[in-house]
Write a protein that binds this DNA or RNA. Structure first.
Lengths: 204, 204
DNA sequence: CGCTCGGCATGACAAATGTCAGACGCGGCT
DNA sequence: AGCCGCGTCTGACATTTGTCATGCCGAGCG
């Protein structure tokens, strides 16, 4: 094991990023070559340092971890991506895997374990946290059609139907119809509960 | 400075807690005597080890940082509390200060800075992050009356008015009235937008 | 081709929600 | 005491939202 893994660390919480950098540096075969606090910064750093593995927080200002991963996939195909997250929602995992992410774990893992996982994804293997995977499977695919999801998203901040209709270029009746069917599919009493459920499952 | 500060660390994210414990241990005058992943666990650990300073995450399973701080205040008056948080909302700061918390900072600070702050609060001084303080001041006090806030909270998960009325033991008309006046005070179009705004400002 | 099925879209009607004027009690103020 | 102002509470009315029956179009299939 003479090979050294060059790591990029991106997380908006300085406390965690710094602490993590220090801990990972204790491992002989890992070296943190760059740190970033935002999505765009992470991309810039990746271009500049071409790391072997990028450890990305899911929620960062600017662009979230999955978006960064997508861009990275295109620009630096050799760079493996490992996502860490505080509040894992099923849909995110699905999107992340679709973006070519190699690992997906909650922040409840230990640093020791994270170091192992960095080696794992660097070796070309995949790893997703079993519990998150189980959630994603039990949540299943979104039953919503494209328009239903679109309208539900526009309804997310509590806007009245008239405004949604205008933004989506639809008749009010149509908007109500989509909201209603979305709510039925999700088993919600009304559209607001539907928005909440869809968010929890990562479908919006 | 021969005195050693005994620290309790509570955060549900193992990654951060562990990393933090390691970093703080590098400081000669700080020693982490206990760690916890949940609110109740933090309380139990505090009782067992009687730390000088408790570093608490705001959002933990079981009981949040402020609730733990309140209990701690009663049981271990000598233990100073420092709250760290990822997403600082104005209302939380206010609640925290009311609970006798001595420090309140976002997780974007560096570990170095955190170590300084632990010494600061241990010395009996207070510290709140300037930016969070500014937010709290600009957000001001909640304009909602007790009933308005209560009803708005019951409406938070999208429940229909009839259900809220039953839970609050009020007539439906009354509930609608409170929701309406709350929405007006918050400058919201409807109650759902009102819930969102009140959450953002930490008023629910 | 002719058929069915599912997604998209609409308007009319029923139900839920928002708005209004007003009643009651309580505390502060002159 | 008498008079506000404020919070609490209510029902009646207007508006918004949810539900339903229906039509249109393209994809898949016998």
């Amino acid at each position: 094991m003479t090979e050294v893994v060059r790591v990029l660390l991106a997380d908006d919480e300085h406390l965690i990023r710094g602490a993590l950098a220090a801990l990972l540096s204790l491992e002989d075969d890992l070296v943190v070559v760059a740190e970033a606090a935002t999505g765009p910064e992470a991309l810039a750093m990746a271009r500049a340092h071409a790391p072997d593995v990028a450890v990305l927080d899911l929620q960062m200002p600017g662009a979230d971890g999955v978006k960064v991963a997508t861009s990275l996939r295109a620009e630096l195909p050799g760079c493996r991506v490992l996502i860490v997250t505080s509040h894992g929602r099923p849909g995110h995992l699905k999107r992340a895997l679709a973006a070519g992410v190699r690992g997906f774990v909650p922040k409840t893992v230990s640093a020791q374990r994270l170091a192992e996982l960095i080696r794992t994804v660097h070796a070309g293997n995949r790893y997703v946290d079993p519990e998150l995977a189980a959630d994603a499977i039990s949540a299943g695919d979104s039953p919503l059609t494209a328009r239903e999801a679109e309208v539900l998203e526009l309804a997310a901040d509590g806007a009245p139907v008239a405004e949604i209709a205008e933004r989506a270029a639809l008749a009010e009746g149509t908007v109500r119809n989509y909201l209603s069917s979305a709510a039925t599919k999700l088993g919600a009493e009304n559209r607001h509960a539907a928005v909440r459920l869809a968010r929890e499952r990562g479908w919006v």
